[in-house]
């Protein structure tokens, strides 16, 4: 019902009743998030896209370079039971910040998912999502799963660009995974081959996808809205269909869609907020039932916990680092 009510901006708190936020409450919750989790920051974005109901320097929230080691596919192959256990344990930590059982009860969450799928979205652009992912194979003639870059047109042969004039000094002080010369030709220091061997072994850096996750305030739904900006192992931007690989299957094709980020003007994937308020309302109610007083400034912690069901392999931070 809230969804249909297009108010200018929400001015009185309806957090407890409807699970929604006023812009002021969004700022309050964002302040606590950035305070407790230093990886999250407030951003101002493109000044020409500022919205007036939020402070100039607090237009949206951002966390950068969040690692994402696995695709959802691999996670879902793992035993579901063990996953449920993990979540359970996490939630039972006595003095932890919040949320008695936000996602602990798997059955409830399953219910949510079914709800979402069967829900008609009364939005100006209803259910854009299903079309999005059905497409990629059409665009992509040479169905290469891993190297589908070709889709974007001709990939130039970068060997053409090799500049033979740039020959860099052999430098024994550079650690790089390709530094194969360390043990053999390091001039000037023959007394330490052993140690260098060891050092080379220590470049165990894993090449992984990373995400920039941003949270904007959605005036229409009066909830936060989550945006995903993904990069592959070589820091190249992920294409939308690749991002879907990191979204839980139950949600990928139903709740995630593409649009232009309101403060950056760049198109990217976002999690459709149409059900956010209802889920938040449920979580808040459950908190009350368990005798905890829901705090509006902790909204985003609760919210991010719920979002982690949608993007289970993206390891963003949403726990309180220092207990207060």
């Amino acid at each position: 019902k809230t969804v249909e009510k297009v108010t200018p901006t929400l001015s009185t708190s309806k957090f407890l009743e409807e699970g929604v936020l006023t812009p002021e409450e969004f700022v309050q919750a964002g302040d606590l998030l950035t305070d407790k989790c230093q990886t999250w920051t407030w951003e101002s974005g493109d000044p020409s896209r500022n919205v007036s109901y939020l402070p100039k320097e607090k237009q949206f929230l951002l966390t950068r370079n969040v690692p994402c080691y696995n695709r959802v596919r691999t996670l879902e192959n793992e035993s579901k039971a063990s996953k449920a256990d993990e979540i359970q344990i996490e939630d039972d930590g006595e003095d932890s910040w919040v949320a008695p059982q936000p996602v602990g009860n798997q059955d409830d969450i399953e219910d949510e998912k079914v709800d979402i799928s069967s829900l008609k979205i009364d939005d100006k652009k209803p259910n854009t999502t299903t079309t999005t992912t059905a497409k990629p194979t059409n665009n992509n003639n040479n169905n290469n799963d891993d190297e589908d870059e070709d889709e974007d047109g001709d990939i130039p042969d970068l060997d053409d660009f090799q500049d033979d004039n740039i020959i860099e000094e052999e430098d024994p002080a550079v650690l790089s995974k390709n530094n194969k010369t360390t043990t053999t030709t390091t001039a000037n220091n023959n007394n330490n081959n052993n140690s260098e061997n060891k050092v080379e072994d220590n470049d165990n850096i894993l090449r992984t996808r990373t995400y920039d996750i941003s949270i904007t305030y959605d005036k229409y739904y009066q909830t936060p809205r989550v945006w995903l900006f993904g990069y592959d192992e070589n820091r190249k931007p992920l294409k939308p269909e690749e991002i879907f690989e990191d979204i839980s299957e139950d949600h990928a094709h139903k709740t995630v869609t593409i649009d232009s980020h309101p403060h950056l003007g760049i198109s990217f994937a976002y999690i459709h907020p149409c059900r956010h308020a209802a889920v938040m309302k449920k979580l808040v109610d459950r908190q009350s039932e368990n005798g905890k007083e829901p705090r509006v400034d902790q909204y985003l912690f609760l919210f991010l916990k719920f979002i982690s069901v949608v993007i289970p392999t993206i390891e963003y931070d949403f726990t309180l680092e220092f207990d207060t």
Partner: peptide
């Protein structure tokens, strides 16, 4: 030592964007 290459057609090309957001 070689240049890197990135193509952003899928997020910048108006035509592709139109395709994606039916």
């Amino acid at each position: 030592i070689a240049p890197r290459f990135v193509s952003l057609a899928s997020t910048m090309d108006p035509l592709k964007l139109a395709e994606q957001s039916v």
